[in-house]
C-alpha cells in the first residue's frame, strides 16, 4: 500500500534475474519472507555496490514486505550501504587491538593518500573509507578489508601496495 501523494518519490526498479535467483535460493531456508530481507539487501548490494531507494523498494515488492520495515533493517546494519560507495570499500579496523598497534596513523596515511575521510568516497569513485569494529584478526593487527579480502599486519608501505593493486584492478 503505497501512498502516492509524493509523486516524485522513487519507484521500485526491476530486479535482475541474478538477483532474483539468489533471493529465491535464500528463501528456501526460511519459513517467512521477512527473514530473507537482510540477505536480499546484501544480494542487491553485491550486484549493485549499494542499496538505492529503488533497490530497496524492489526488494520490498519482491518479498512483499513494507518498505518501511525493510528500511528499518537496512539502516540498522553497518554493512548495508544506503549511499553510493566506491568500487573498493576499505574497511579499516579501528577496535582496540588494532588501535594499540597504530591503526590511527594508518587511517591518517590512507586519508592523506586518497584525500578522503571516514565515510567519504574518492572523486574517481575508486575508494570509500569506512571504519569497522574488530575484524577478529587481532593477532595480526592492524588489519583491514577491501572488498572480500582481509589484509593483515598492515604498514603504510603495505597499504600503498594494496591500494595500487586495487586501483589497477579497477
Amino acid at each position: 500500500m503505497s501512498n502516492l501523494i509524493a509523486s516524485t518519490a522513487p519507484k521500485a526498479r526491476q530486479l535482475t534475474p541474478e538477483e532474483i535467483h539468489d533471493i529465491e535460493h535464500e528463501k528456501t531456508h526460511y519459513p517467512y519472507a521477512q527473514a530473507v530481507g537482510l540477505e536480499a539487501l546484501k544480494i542487491v548490494q553485491k550486484y549493485q555496490g549499494w542499496v538505492s531507494d529503488e533497490s530497496l523498494l524492489a526488494v520490498a515488492d519482491y518479498l512483499k514486505l513494507p518498505p518501511d520495515e525493510l528500511e528499518g533493517v537496512a539502516t540498522f546494519f553497518n554493512m548495508i550501504f544506503r549511499r553510493p560507495v566506491g568500487k573498493n570499500v576499505i574497511l579499516l579496523c579501528d577496535s582496540v587491538a588494532c588501535w594499540m598497534l597504530g591503526c590511527d596513523s594508518l587511517k591518517s596515511h590512507i586519508s592523506s593518500k586518497l584525500g578522503i575521510d571516514y565515510g567519504q568516497t574518492t572523486a574517481d569513485n575508486q575508494f570509500t573509507l569506512i571504519p569497522v569494529p574488530c575484524l577478529g584478526d587481532c593477532d595480526k593487527a592492524p588489519t583491514m578489508m577491501v572488498g572480500d579480502v582481509t589484509y593483515r599486519n598492515l604498514t603504510p608501505a603495505k597499504i600503498d601496495t594494496i591500494l595500487a593493486e586495487c586501483k589497477a584492478r579497477g
Binding site: S95, V96, A97, P133, C134, G136, D137, C138, D139
Partner: peptide, 11 residues
C-alpha cells in the same frame, strides 16, 4: 557473530 573486540577464536 564473533565481534567482541580482541576475540578471534571462532574464526
Amino acid at each position: 557473530d564473533e565481534m567482541e573486540p580482541g576475540t578471534f577464536k571462532d574464526r
